[in-house]
């Protein structure tokens, strides 16, 4: 495979998008769209910029991007409307016998 070697190591913007970090975390956020007030606190505070408020039908709601979400829970703690909960990923739900 031929690799590209740029002048002095210049990289293209947003090329980190190829790194899908969504599998890092053990938990993931779930937004209660009824409770969400689209205040954007989660959007502004997400360390990874992977939860954004979008129009969904008649309502604006926060939608996490699970391709990148690391499950840190900052959005969960930031939400003033208590509209985000964290859930354990299925693969970490272990049966203890």
């Amino acid at each position: 495979m031929v690799i590209r070697i740029t002048l002095g190591g210049i990289s293209k913007p947003h090329s980190s998008k190829s790194m899908k970090t969504g599998d890092w975390g053990t938990e993931f956020p779930i937004v209660d769209e009824e409770k969400c007030t689209a205040c954007r606190a989660c959007e502004h505070l997400c360390p990874d910029g992977c939860i954004v408020v979008v129009e969904k039908g008649e309502k604006k709601v926060a939608v996490p991007d699970y391709d990148y979400c690391k499950g840190c829970g900052v959005c969960f703690t930031a939400c003033p409307a208590d509209a985000i909960r964290m859930e354990l990923k299925d693969i970490y739900k272990l049966d203890v016998c």
């Binding site: 690799i3 070697i5 002095g8 190591g9 210049i10 990289s11 293209k12 913007p13 090329s15």
Partner: peptide, 12 residues
């Protein structure tokens, strides 16, 4: 908006 002075891992 390019990124100057990237660090290079051993692969490059």
């Amino acid at each position: 908006p390019l990124t100057f002075g990237s660090y290079a891992p051993p692969h490059c």
